[in-house]
Every structure is written in structure tokens, then in C-alpha cells.
Design a protein around this nucleic acid. Structure first.
Lengths: 357, 357
DNA sequence: CTGTTAGCGCATTCAC
DNA sequence: GTGAATGCGCTAACAG
């Protein structure tokens, strides 16, 4: 009933294999026959059957993306970008969310393999290395993003969490702040740990003592942000600047600052991690560390596609796998806007130095 | 090399077909053999090859989701919900974004068909009815969401845009407001048109004359929101309430209101369309019309799955197709929060006082 | 360069 | 209930 490759071949008066080769752009086909076959195909409105093609060739033109959820700004940005890039390369994206549950993640990965995905991009728990390494050995491409996995043989694309946090803190210190509050993520999260140590390092570099009473770390939720901001404002810490390093918490922090009538940046300078439209339009516009979600996604796709190409040409060799294992960092970027300024002399704890250049 | 159904059959000492039937839960299999086959399968760690299964049975267990982008709050909420529901039913989601371009949409739909998706959920341009109707005739399930398509035979799930806008306006009017500003979407968008007419109707119902100078309609962008809010505040309209019916614009409107030191709800009552975390945490918390994105997604999946079941049992019959074509509305909900109050008589028309510190 | 042949792994006839 | 046989649509040897 429907038009298959056979129909096209008959119409073009060539064999099945010639038709197949012509349509898949094989080099060993004369220009003439290619034209004839192409014509026949378009006349008939031929569409290839991907399932058949995948069964035979082991290439489904499907890529799996595994991540926690789509609510987080960076996550849906990444999903959006990856999907666009892949489509332009002839791939489709199977999207799967895990809610950060390792068991769900594991089961999802296996299901993706059932569907014969050519590769997987995973923002994972770090606990599925055995499975994804097996994927690699079976000729699937794998890329880890945002979260690393120690035992994974696949390349990993990470955000520059430590450096970004360092830069944020440094920015504030350079403006003359010495009482810099920090609201961040939990220690058990890679990003939470890395950002906190960037904060610590920058303080040390500027000879500013680390003060626990200025630091609050907790879950990636709006509620925590609200709580933490309220708490920090309540304490008499002499805080003149705040670094919000927990993205989800920002949604709780901003309303609280506003509610307390904090004048930004006069009373309090503010830097947030991860840019978003809201922060640009805020009054005043908020200085941020842009973590480069778009670039993370782009690089991931690049690494995935180059793996797929290598698998096609070289196959699965130990040497190739060895070359694969590498960590990439996408640099973050300080976007200075109106929410940061030198501390108001009257409120500053120490005498304001001139910011060094 | 890898373990296939044949391996399982051999291990269980049954034929290929028996193994197949046992694993797919066919009723004409004895309990004993089923147990043996199941055991063999799990011993071997058997995983079915979906491509082969799809090729043979025409069921891929893949569903396509077509939408504009993942940035819009409602869109990624819907994608998230749909994906979860489908996974729990044994389906995987192929996600495709169109940027609202009908040509991209068309090509995407065809590609999804190439992959043999069992069904498609589409937030579309309304211009792909011919294609999706063809899908229906070919035994694929189709559901339109959020945007209707006049010629589509598939069921359509819509948000209650008019009623929601009516309710929002009514809420303000009931509080005593008579100068109610409106920032909405363009007339050419279904939702833009529907919400505007809900606004008009509610005004009429309360005997409030429609005043063009209070109404600004434009594209679904943050920039438009900022512009529109600035403009409305600049005009001397005596506006005491504002209905922000353009979701994307809200991100522009809020900062401008804040920037101008508008006291909400004292000087201005505010209602927004489409709820989100930020609005709950705003100070004051913003009254919204919740459009029920989650419910829209849930209902869409229900309709899709029931179609798939019907196709399996009844096949593609004209009667079934006729029964299919139906529009569903997910009611919206007014969530009254702190941003709406009766107009303050003394300040209603006078110029804003100094912003509080 | 092109045609012939042979399956990929599975679900589903049809017999028994 | 179970097995044997067939082919879904396509790609990839293998010849020529």
C-alpha cells in the first residue's frame, strides 16, 4: 500500500540496492542514476522507514537526552538547544526526565538503548557509569553534561562553577565589599561544592576572613532561597553584598529583598549565578554569572556527533575509547549590570579601598 | 552476539513464537511456559529490539510532541508532564520545536512519521491539518493542544482563554475598579483574541465603557511588556487596575511597575494570566489566572492513549474518526492573592507619591 | 558503477 | 497452547 524503496526502485528502473545507495548519498553511484532515483522518490513522495533502516543498519537517527526536569532554566535551555542542533543534523531527540532518581535514570537509559538510539546526552546522577560505559562498548555515543561521573569513559562537559563563583566574589571584593553573603547549594552537589570553594578562594585571595554567619547552603528550591535571604537579613552581619549561587533559590531571594525594601545596590550589592531574562529586566538589572547553558549544549552536541562519526569510521576500538575520556569546561562569564556597586561608605565595615584594576 | 528473542527461546526450550507471545503477555500461553520464558529472559538480561518490533508490528512506542519552544513556561510544563505520563505508560517522547514556523512544523511531522511514532501531540500553527488528518487515516493518533486547527479531525484541548480573561476582569470590576488596563497578545493569535474578548465582555457586563487608551496589544515578548507598561503608566488614564494577559510580557511589566515605584495593590491592582512560581513569591504575591498547563497536558495524553487503544481494537474506521473530532476546554482558575484590592478612592486618579523606602 | 542475495529481530499468520 | 514459516523495509556484503 505505502510507497517503499522497492516502489521507487521500480519506478526508476533500478535495483533495490541502487535506489538505496542513491538516496543515502553513496559515492559509488553515477550522477545520472542518482538524479533518476531522486526524481522517482520525490514523484512518489517516498519517505524512508526509519525502523527498517535502524534494524538493518544499527543507526536510528535518534538521540536520547536524560535530565532531571524541564523546569530549571538551564535544563530547558539545554534541551531546547540540543534539540535544534540535532534536528539540523538529521537526528531526533528522545527526551527523558529522571527527577534526579538514579533508578529512574538507569531504567531510562536501558529503554533508550532498546530504541536503538545512536547516542545519549546525560545530565545524570553519576551512578550510571557502568551502563553508559557498556553503551560505549556497544558503539553508542555518550556525553556527560553538567554533572561528572568519575568512572565514566565518556567525555564530560562541565560548567565552570568554581571559576564563576570566584569571579563573582572577586567582582564584589574588588568593588570594596568585605562582608559578602553567600547563599548556595548543598555540599553534596558538585556545583554546590565547586561554587562554594570559588567563593572561599576569592575571599582568601583578597584577605577577607571567611565568616560562617554570612553563609547559607541548602537545597535547590525557591523556598530555601526565601528562608536563607530572610535569615541573612535578620542577622546583624554588616553584609553589604550578596552572592546568590543557587539558581532555584534566586526566585525566593529576590522577593524577600524587595519585601524588606533593600535598596540595590545602595544597601546591598547582588550577584546571581545563571542568567535569565527576568534578571536582565529586574530593577535594577542584576549582575550575573552566565554559566553558558547554550554553549554547554552546543559543545555536547559537537562531542556527540564527532563520536558518532568516529564510530562509523573507526568502529569501537580501545584506543578510541581512551581518547574519548576527557573533561571540557565551558567558561562562565561575569555580566556586570546595575545591581553591584561599591559599598556605601557610611555602611561599609572597613574603609573602602580603591578597586584594583 | 547480543541476546535476542531467539536466545531466550532456546534457553527456555520453546519456539520463537512462543517466547514472543509469552513476553508480550498473550493470553493463549500457559502459566508454566510463561514463567519459564520470563525466567530465561531475565536470566539473560534480554531487552527487546524496538526497531524490529516496530517494523513488524507498526507500533514504535514512540510519541511525537511538536511545540514552539521550551522557554515558555506553559510549554515546558506541558512537555515535562506529557513526558512523565507517557513514560509511565511505556512510551517515549520525541520532542521537536518549531519556533512557530509552519514549514518547520510540517517537515517535523513527516520526520516523526518516518520514525513510526504511534501518535503526535501538537501545539501547532493550525496549518498542518492536512498532514495530521492523513496521519489519522494511517492509524496514528493525533491530539491538538492549546491552538486549534479548524480543519483538523483530531481532538483539540484548549485553555479557557476567554473565560479566564472574563474572570480576571470581573474580579477587578467586582472590587470596584472601573479603569482597568489591559496588556495582551496580538489579535491574530487565538489566545490573544479570546482573552481580549473576555476582557471586553466582562467590562460590558459591568457597564464599564471600553476605553482604547487603556488597552495595548502586541507580540509575546518581554520587551513588549516593558514598553506597554511604560506607555500605560505615562498616559493619564486614571488606571487603577491592570490585567496582564500576555504571559511573556509579564516579565517586562513587573520590572517596570517596580521601577516606577507603583504600590501594589494600593495604587494599582494587578492580575496576570498563567501562574508561575515567581508570581507566588512576588511582593505582593500576584493574583493570577491559572491556565491549567498541567491539566492540559494530562488530558492530551489521556486522549492520545485512548485513541491508540481504539485504533488497536477498532482499526481506522470512518465512524471512529467522526467521534474523534471534538474540542475540550480545560477551565482556568482565578487564584486571588495580594496584588488585587479595591481602588483607593483618594489616590485613584492622582499622581503617584514617592515610592516607599 | 550496478544487481543479486541475504538477513537485521520480531510478530503474526497458519497449521497441528 | 505451541511450533514452523513468512516477511515488515531496508542496507550491506558479494559478485559482476
Amino acid at each position: 500500500m505505502s510507497v517503499t524503496l522497492r516502489t521507487v526502485a521500480e519506478r526508476a528502473n533500478v535495483s533495490l540496492s541502487t535506489a538505496s545507495r542513491a538516496l543515502s548519498g553513496s559515492p559509488l553511484i553515477s550522477e545520472g542514476t542518482r538524479a533518476v532515483v531522486d526524481q522517482a522518490a520525490s514523484d512518489l513522495g517516498y519517505r524512508p522507514n526509519r525502523a527498517a533502516s535502524a534494524l538493518r543498519s544499527k543507526r536510528s537517527h535518534l538521540i536520547g537526552l536524560v535530565l532531571n526536569n524541564l523546569v530549571n532554566q538551564s535544563f530547558h535551555t539545554i534541551a531546547d538547544v540540543i534539540q535544534r542542533r540535532l534536528r539540523s543534523e538529521g537526528y531526533q531527540l528522545i527526551l527523558s526526565t529522571t527527577d534526579a532518581d538514579p533508578r529512574t535514570e538507569e531504567s531510562l537509559l536501558l529503554t533508550l538503548a532498546d530504541h536503538g538510539v545512536d547516542g545519549v546526552i546525560i545530565i545524570g546522577s553519576g551512578q550510571s557509569a557502568a551502563t553508559t560505559n557498556d553503551f560505549l562498548h556497544r558503539g553508542m555515543a555518550v556525553v556527560n553534561v553538567i554533572r561528572s561521573s568519575h568512572d565514566s569513559l565518556a567525555p564530560t562537559v562541565l560548567a565552570a562553577d568554581r571559576d564563576g563563583a570566584y569571579e563573582a566574589t572577586e567582582h564584589l571584593a574588588s568593588l570594596g565589599h568585605r562582608r559578602i553573603g553567600y547563599i548556595g547549594g548543598i555540599e553534596s552537589a558538585d556545583s554546590g561544592r565547586a561554587r562554594h570553594s570559588g567563593y572561599e578562594d576569592a575571599l582568601a585571595r583578597h584577605g577577607i576572613p571567611y565568616d560562617e554567619s554570612l553563609v547559607l547552603r541548602g537545597p535547590f528550591t525557591q523556598d530555601f532561597g526565601a528562608l536563607a535571604a530572610t535569615e541573612l537579613l535578620a542577622r546583624s552581619t554588616g553584609m553589604t553584598a550578596l552572592f546568590a549561587a543557587n539558581h532555584e533559590a534566586v526566585f525566593g531571594i529576590l522577593p524577600v529583598l524587595m519585601q524588606h525594601g533593600m535598596r540595590i545596590p545602595d544597601q546591598l550589592s547582588l550577584v546571581c549565578f545563571e542568567d535569565m531574562p527576568l534578571l536582565q529586566m529586574w530593577h535594577p538589572a542584576v549582575t550575573v554569572i552566565d554559566n553558558g547553558a547554550t554553549q554547554l549544549a552546543e559543545l555536547s552536541v559537537d562531542l556527540l556527533l564527532s563520536q558518532i562519526r568516529a564510530i562509523v569510521s573507526e568502529g569501537v576500538t580501545p584506543e578510541r575509547l581512551r581518547r574519548l575520556t576527557r573533561t571540557y569546561r565551558v567558561g562562565s562569564q561575569l555580566v556586570a549590570r546595575a545591581s553591584t556597586a561599591p559599598p556605601a561608605p557610611a555602611f561599609a565595615v572597613s574603609s573602602p579601598r580603591k578597586a584594583r584594576s
